[in-house]
Amino acid sequence: MAESWLDFERPIIELERKIEELKSLDENGALKEEISKLENKASKLREDVYKNLNRWQKVQLARHLKRPYISDYIELMFDNFVELHGDRNFGDDLAIIAGIAKLDGKSVVIVGHEKGRNTKEKIRRNFGMPHPEGYRKALRVMQLAAKFKKPILTFVDTPGAYPGVGAEERGQSEAIARNLREISMLPVPIVVSITGEGGSGGALAIAIGDKILMQEHSIYSVISPEGCASILWRDSSKAPEAAEALKLTAQDLMGFGVIDEIVSEPAGGAHRDSKDAAERLKRAILNSLNELTTLPKEELVRKRIEKFLKMGVYENR
């Protein structure tokens, strides 16, 4: 498989490889001191690089080709997953995975975007860009959860809703709008995890919930940095500047009160240790669920609507 490390990751990866190499050569322990020196250096380098990521670097991490996707998390976090297909109306959109599973022995419903790992998978999954039938499948399965009083967990990772002729013909706007309205009223706990790219309305359509969690290196934005740059400066290569202007990192969003919690990732990002990333995310999800399941359903819905009501900045003059 082709190397897919980012520029700012490379020095770390190289150092780590060198350490591995030395370890494999070091049969009698003579290089022990050298190795530990390099290990210290590597950990310091990791810390330096990841503590000071700019927003564009965060975007790149959020889109990292090795970043865990919902299919990975399903495997790492849940038991007895059964995928449910189709919107009962037009088709089955593979850009969204939906299904039922057990989380620590409790029944849950899962919905999330899937980008697909290799080229063939990416095409099959349409790069995680849903058509209306994907959103309608998501809603159908979430309504199933509501009917049988099971909590809903969503995983958000998409460049956006698919911009195509068929998508428009079948009502991309209507599908998203309907989800926003209907999901806001579902009388069961909903925990949303933004795990990679939160691409505008295409992300929001499954990101209405009681707790919005964001992984440390994920992003969530009203428009892609490339799209924003082409509108602002008629030049999509200015995406790094646009990323700064859009303030789209988990840390930014926490500051705006749009999300509830930042979930830490293993050193170097979720893709460096997906098992560890899944464990941390699972813990955060369980904590949220424990908190939410104590609320009566009327209060749950009322609080959810109030939560979004508070969002926005304006003045009275």
Partner: peptide, 17 residues
């Protein structure tokens, strides 16, 4: 207005519910 604008979609739709 970045993410705050996106959230207005949720806000208005939830109230329409």
């Amino acid at each position: 207005e970045g993410i705050l604008s996106l959230m207005q979609m949720a806000k208005t739709s939830a109230h329409l519910a």
